[in-house]
Design a binder for these strands. Structure first.
Lengths: 219, 219, 219, 219
DNA sequence: GATGAATGAGCTTTCATTCAT
DNA sequence: CATGAATGAAAGCTCATTCAT
């Protein structure tokens, strides 16, 4: 990453890979966007695959560091989890392209895809650690921590991805509170216990607004 | 789907597409697996893309029907949600290949990918409907139903996908109870309120087994 | 040509061959236009090439008969030539598609192209016969009759073809008088001799009207 | 045309296209004849069509320049026309392949064919300009200049084409005098008026040799 | 007679990679 | 270090022809 050429290639590659996907991206296009000759890419990276793996490793590591940097020892598991949610959304907002690459290119039996999954597993383990800490501290109920961690990661990612494709300008961190609520208290959060006594089950009472109409009205 | 050749092509296509991804899959390979000549595929489907879209539409619709068929009017939203979780996992177990295709091929700006997302949106709307019904009935707390639905779909899918790649023989429905718990009551389920008194959360007491070691110990 | 199917195929083939050319025309398209199954064409014609040759032979023979039918023994060579010009133009007007096929498909070393040229040679010989008769009778000057005949045929055909592509509705026989003049008396027809004494070669005098402006003003 | 590879491809392409026609010519064949890899053609030309159009534009322009270069301001229209006839025949002799391509590939509604016709029209306009100048100067009689020009071009081309296929070694310029005569004075040339008194038109006297026998006996 | 599903050879085009400069 | 012309394997797709019904 020292040479400016390497940097330019790196950035062009993220752009092109996220836009086209690994298979459809061409070295010509990357070279053109990076303003270098095609041969130059091969001077710096052994192959298209290596370029991709390099990029994916850097990116996943960046995500991991971005999120972990915000966690401190003193936080409760709950606070850590909130932070994770918020920071992953922020990261996806800032590195939209990379977010797309992550979900698109990790699944398959190619070498680069296995490598990619290894990186994801590494990241998700960081989430799982928080889950485990929470269980251990009593904040969280006993559960399968791995499933919980992947579920959190997957829910955040797919939702983000969906939003990004539906509206590229959408501000992802906006979704944070919903995720926190859903994740910490579930769909049925009977908050302070004893609350929510008068559930208006009656038919027709305050019908839920049409799905189309109410998408995302923040409180 | 009447002709047996069409059926053979269809099945071979799922196989190959899930194994290789859309771009890497070749018509030669599909033809070979389907035991038909390459031209035969083109006799039945206009193009590789059309074959893929057909397959994806059939598959997504199958998923939707598979899940919705198990929901009945009398169920509470909570029961419906449990059913959705269980049935989606069952479907992913039975149609593993298709599950892989879903997450891998829906993200991008190609025509087939937009079409694919349209199908996913259709399915996720069905989940969202249950969320909305639950909110309406008071079973669920107010929240952004769309985010909740995508989160459920994404959490289930990515977790399933991860498991399938880690261990193709893994029995996905096993994860159901964890998801139900996580989804309905969140990480912090203080069930019956005031209950859960004797959780041995004391530090150091029965430390969670090493992450690698305990993956997925069902209760 | 007895069966109605054969006739339908024949007509569809002329349509398609003239529109697409031999190579680009497909048996599917011909079958569709003829409202028969593809196999039916092969029941009546051994191959695409045979269908084409059949059509070309019929057509060229038709042209030859169409023109020759109008020539009578009593006519002078000059009148015969006028008739040939007029009738070929009429034929090209009525069988536009075939006219296109003629010039497009006769040149090459494929079997069908040799066969096609044989047919053309046959037709051009009929023209040459009139030239020879005219020379013999003293109406025409001595010249190479073959070159004259091909020149007449080629001049008429290419001009017609050009007009047909520029304006498909153009009425070809309109061009007859120009051809007759050009052919019988040449560009420099000083009819009654003694005419044209003061050739104004001076530069710049009365510039010729713009080409675009005067196209085809009939007298 | 700078690179030697481009030149080699260009020349191979003319060869193959003229031999096979646009549709039947294959890029493999062209590559083989040019002694380059198939990919190399695509490095220099975007597509088969572009290669063809390039070749056709170069060729038609070459024909036009070849002919126009021999015309000088001082010439009379008659001399110019003689020159055009002679030079076009010379060109067709030297660039036989291209001559074949011209008449074979200009007729149709494909993009390349329209483009081709545009080039032909450009060339024929140059002929028409001479016709117009002759009419203006009084050398030529009034006539439709466009029809005359296309007629000249077509007569020359088709006749040449026919000869080339009948005998590839035939020396086209030999035909020049016949064309000049035919074109300038028509079939019925009563030359200098009153001249040509002793044309032996007596019946039976020196009957024209059988058509087959005398093809092209130059005076 | 007529059909149309099936075939596979053959085509154009793409693109990661190499290498002489 | 950097370049970009050259490569050739591989891919998607077409279509004349066949043949069982």
């Amino acid at each position: 990453m020292t040479s400016s050429k390497t940097r330019m290639i790196f950035e062009a590659a993220i752009d092109i890979f996220s836009e086209r996907g690994f298979e459809k991206a061409t070295m010509d296009e990357i070279a053109a966007k990076a303003n270098v000759a095609k041969g130059t890419i091969y001077y710096h990276f052994k192959s298209k695959e290596e370029l991709f793996v390099f990029l994916v490793e850097e990116g996943t590591e960046l995500l991991r560091e971005h999120v972990l940097a915000k966690l401190s020892e003193q936080m409760t598991a709950t606070d850590k989890m909130r932070t994770i949610i918020h920071e992953q959304l922020t990261f996806f907002k800032d590195y939209k392209d990379f977010c797309i690459i992550i979900l698109r290119e990790a699944w398959g039996e190619e070498q680069r895809q296995r490598q990619f999954r290894r990186m994801l597993v590494h990241y998700v383990h960081s989430i799982e650690d928080v889950v485990l800490a929470g269980i251990h501290s009593g904040e969280f109920a006993e559960t399968d921590s791995s499933t919980a961690a992947w579920s959190i990661f997957g829910g955040l990612s797919i939702t983000a991805l969906n939003h990004l494709f539906a509206d590229p300008t959408f501000d992802l961190p906006t979704l944070g509170p919903f995720f926190e609520d859903l994740l910490m208290r579930g769909l049925t959060h009977r908050d302070s216990c004893a609350v929510q006594p008068e559930i208006p089950h009656e038919d027709g009472v305050a019908p839920p607004p049409s799905r189309e109409a109410r998408k995302l009205e923040l409180p």
